[in-house]
Amino acid sequence: MSGGKPINPRGTKYEKVEFPVFEFPVVGKARYSYTTGEALGRFLAGLKEGKILGTYCAGCGRVFVPPRIYCSYCFKEVDGWLEAKDEGVVVTAVMSYISATRARLERPVAVGVIKLDVPGRQFDDHFFPGIMHYICGATEDDVKSMRIFGARVKAKWKRPEQRTGSITDIECFEVVRP
């Protein structure tokens, strides 16, 4: 801005200003190693063995996958562990066209929430043992049209030697064709 001229109430055009630039030697190298604890520790160890483990509360019948050591509804320790099946039904799903860094993906991916089967137990759509994961074997249209909702899917596991005890030991949940 030169002297004499009235100040432009709408501001100065971007390209006319030389903004000061700060370069920070420390911009915050925040790194953590999260303690898995008893519940998620055992859950991850289960994944390495190709199992999806959860906990249950005998009081209210809720099943926790991913597991907790407490029932947050009854406020008491859970009553035990169980194994959920590695298959279930899609509760909700979306197509994602961008990556986590907002770059456009070459091929869009489907992400969904899966209500897992636990033999002998029934769950409503409000609270259920579930996993959020990638869905494979569905077309873009299956997902966009929401036909995928309610579809049966099954975990596609990495080979045992590739598993590390992580949620990514499951590559995706694959649509089971009848």
């Binding site: 700060f22 370069e23 920070f24 030697p25 420390v26 915050g28 190298k29 925040a30 790194r31 953590y32 190693s33 999260y34 303690t35």
Partner: peptide, 23 residues
Amino acid sequence: SDVETLNEVIFTATDPISLRPLG
């Protein structure tokens, strides 16, 4: 014990313009 870079995390609480560049 979960924070691997405690010094840096604490340092992010300092003024980002007047103090943090001192590193």
